[in-house]
């Protein structure tokens, strides 16, 4: 396959940045999207150019480090797939592919396609945990958990924190990310004591970071590689309301 790539290049946080066009040839359909970029980068290095910087690590769709907006869609059009798991067989020969970084004020560009997502860590710091120091836990069987609750909590807990939800949201909202963690912990008995204070602290931190508000457009869940459902946001809203009513 031969492809034309239009890639966002930005040498650093203060650079204005621009789209640059690259031709890549002899792309195998079995390559992953990142392997295709690897091949391009190898060429760029040897030509003395700066290779395209992008975040990636596990390359098996679980660490949440990779992520780029491909042809206007976070992680590309293949559903429930991270960029590293996207394969070139989903593209046509001769296609033109636009590649951009996540765009959101709380995710400033570090370089090229690399953005700073530390805002997510700070949302977790605000309350995305159960306060239980090591060694203080009772026996694991002392509190039974309904299987349905455990499964639903797991579904929410599969969030990989990649930030695609923010990138796709027309409002640049981090509601799906925040709601996934709130839902995970609020469904389990272990999360109950801090349930309301957690929701309040995390939502307030999300606002403080400068993320937009949720308008329930559903763009987030559509691109979420783990398919975190939109009703997690309803649960977050409910907990947040209760916390404020107190």
């Amino acid at each position: 396959m031969n492809l034309t790539l239009r890639v966002w290049r930005q040498s650093g946080p203060t650079d204005k940045g621009r789209m640059v066009t690259y031709k890549v040839e002899d792309v195998s359909p079995d390559m992953s999207f990142l392997e295709m970029l690897d091949v391009l980068n190898e060429k760029l290095i040897l030509e003395g150019d700066d290779p395209i910087a992008f975040d990636h690590d596990c390359r098996e769709g679980i660490c949440g480090m990779c992520g780029m907006v491909i042809n206007g869609v976070a992680h590309g059009e293949q559903r429930a797939t991270t960029t590293c798991q996207l394969h070139m067989r989903h593209f046509e020969d001769g296609a033109e592919i636009t590649i951009e970084p996540w765009r959101a004020a709380p995710f400033p560009v570090v370089k090229d396609l690399v953005v700073d997502r530390s805002a997510f860590d700070r949302i977790i710091q605000a309350g995305g945990f159960v306060s239980v120091p090591a060694g203080s836990a009772p026996d694991a069987h002392s509190v039974p958990v309904r299987k349905e609750d455990a499964d639903a909590a797991f579904d929410a807990a599969t969030c990989i924190g990649c930030g695609a939800c923010v990138a796709a949201c027309p409002n640049g909202s981090a509601s799906l990310f925040t709601a996934a963690k709130i839902t995970h912990l609020s469904l389990l008995p272990q999360g109950q004591p801090e349930r309301l204070s957690r929701a309040k602290a995390m939502v307030d931190q999300m606002d403080a970071e400068g993320f937009g508000g949720c308008t329930n457009t559903g763009e987030c869940t559509a691109v979420c590689p783990k398919g975190i459902p939109l009703d997690t946001i309803a649960r977050m809203n409910s907990d947040y309301l209760k916390a404020n009513a107190k």
């Binding site: 945990f129 159960v130 239980v132 090591a134 060694g135 203080s136 836990a137 009772p138 026996d139 694991a140 069987h141 509190v143 039974p144 958990v145 309904r146 299987k147 455990a150 499964d151 909590a153 797991f154 807990a157 995970h184 912990l185 389990l188 272990q190 999360g191």
Partner: peptide, 17 residues
């Protein structure tokens, strides 16, 4: 014990264990 207390959603049986 520690992981369960932290809210790690391990697989469970219908009896909740």
């Amino acid at each position: 014990d520690q992981a369960v207390a932290q809210g790690v959603p391990f697989a469970r049986e219908y009896g909740g264990l």
